[in-house]
Amino acid sequence: MHICTVTPISVTVGANRIVPAIAIPYPLGNPSSEIEEEKAIRRKIVENALEALTIGVDGQRIFE
């Protein structure tokens, strides 16, 4: 599964399970947040990704 910020690129290159991220230089973070808050944001994206892995897909799907 693919975590990335610019999801249309992911769709173009053919990823099947896609999870949107925060920003190009920090897909799984947010430097303007406090460290603990930032880690919570990261965890949420990773949990979303893990959940996507447990869901069957027929083709390409973006897990918002």
Partner: peptide, 8 residues
Amino acid sequence: DAVILTST
């Protein structure tokens, strides 16, 4: 079993 691929 599974891979998480991250891209910037």
